[in-house]
């Protein structure tokens, strides 16, 4: 899985490419944890190039969400394909995260946070 970081003001966007599964969840967790810990980050995770997320990937997202909440940061997800949206729905995860259609909307939503 490829992980690319870009900064836009106070918001860091992490674009993922590939699969979020048990083979890649550890690396992703490490990278995201560092970002959340280093600054009380406002973090956007862009799923535009993700085709698959498994239970291990969902666990990573829950851990990062908790860390972000503890650090009083902000977290938003964006760029879902219809398949990724379906997986979030069957895992009952859609209500747990701020999910926006595009990266721009996600950055704008976190950028306006107080």
């Amino acid at each position: 899985m490829e992980i690319t970081e870009t900064k836009s003001g106070a918001v860091t966007t992490v674009a993922l490419k590939g699969r979020v599964d048990s083979a890649t969840a550890g690396t992703l967790r490490e990278r995201l944890s560092k970002l959340v810990e280093s600054v009380p980050a406002r973090l956007v995770i862009d799923f535009r190039d993700v085709a698959y997320i498994s239970s291990a990937g969902f666990r990573t997202l829950l851990i990062i969400a908790k860390q972000s909440e503890d650090a009083k940061g902000g977290l938003a997800l964006c760029g879902f394909s219809s398949e990724v949206r379906r997986l979030f729905e069957i895992a009952a995860f859609t209500e747990l995260f701020l999910i926006l259609p595009s990266r721009e909307e996600a950055i704008a939503a976190l950028g306006s946070m107080k």
Partner: peptide, 13 residues
């Protein structure tokens, strides 16, 4: 359960 235990992840799967 999902966040803190392997059992939780298995059950989520």
């Amino acid at each position: 359960e999902i966040r803190d235990t392997d059992e939780g992840v298995r059950r989520l799967a």
